[in-house]
């Protein structure tokens, strides 16, 4: 599903990855663990095509995303990848529903179809009761659920989550773990970059990739 071949990524003179090779299978739940600055987030960005590698290949679902022109890369991301950012990256002046609908806007779908899709994910991630509230008025946990719902709204095959529990308390972390279990049951390929040790012993995690070693 995702193949990383001889990946090199440099920032200035510093190598973050040098000839790194890895692969992730369809339906796998992978935890990437590592300290801050170890390259976890950058790997997710590279897989999502948000940044380009210095050299090497990243093949996602037989598309060489690292070499795709920007135009196709965005379209590929829209159709295949849902991202949950560390700081959620929601547009605070928009409502929950409007934030969730954002990935569908360029598709030019019918309003009713879009609303139906948004309703489905809002119900799934238990945020429907806040649908018309502005995101800036929500708690951290609620904002996280909006970000998760938004990542799911276009029904992507791959979910990338970057430090999803970094700013959450114990209760909300457990809630996210439950959501993760639900996502896994939908046979999505999920890659979570985190240094939160609570993820390392989960029975439904397929593999842990340790960037510290």
């Amino acid at each position: 599903m995702i193949a990383i071949k001889s990946l090199t990524k440099k920032f200035g003179n510093k190598f973050l990855f040098e000839n790194y090779t890895e692969s992730f299978q369809e339906g796998e739940l992978i935890i990437i663990k590592g300290k801050s600055g170890s390259g976890k987030s950058t790997l997710l960005s590279l897989i999502a095509g948000l940044t380009k590698p210095t050299s090497g290949e990243i093949v996602v679902d037989s598309q060489q995303i690292s070499k795709l022109p920007e135009h196709f890369c965005s379209a590929f991301r829209r159709d295949n990848i849902g991202i949950i950012f560390q700081k959620y990256n929601l547009i605070e002046s928009l409502s929950v529903r409007e934030n969730i609908l954002l990935p569908l806007v360029p598709l030019g779908l019918q309003e009713s179809l879009m609303q139906e899709q948004a309703k489905k994910v809002m119900q799934q991630f238990e945020i429907e009761h806040k649908a018309d509230e502005l995101v800036k008025k929500l708690s951290g946990g609620e904002q996280q659920r909006v970000a998760i719902a938004r990542a799911h709204v276009a029904d992507p095959k791959i979910i990338l989550a970057d430090e999803p529990t970094a700013n959450l308390d114990e209760k909300l972390v457990l809630s996210f773990i439950n959501i993760l279990r639900k996502m896994k049951s939908q046979n999505k390929t999920i890659i979570v970059a985190t240094h939160d040790s609570r993820f390392f012993n989960l029975d439904f995690v397929d593999r842990i990739v340790d960037f510290d070693s």
């Binding site: 999502a48 948000l50 920007e70 135009h71 965005s74 379209a75 991301r77 829209r78 159709d79 990848i81 991202i83 950012f85 990256n89 929601l90 547009i91 954002l102 990935p103 806007v105 360029p106 938004r150 276009a154």
Partner: peptide, 16 residues
Amino acid sequence: KREIAILKALGWRVED
């Protein structure tokens, strides 16, 4: 700028 970056991350193309 941040909003444009978010939209792109969500799959909006430059032309969108």
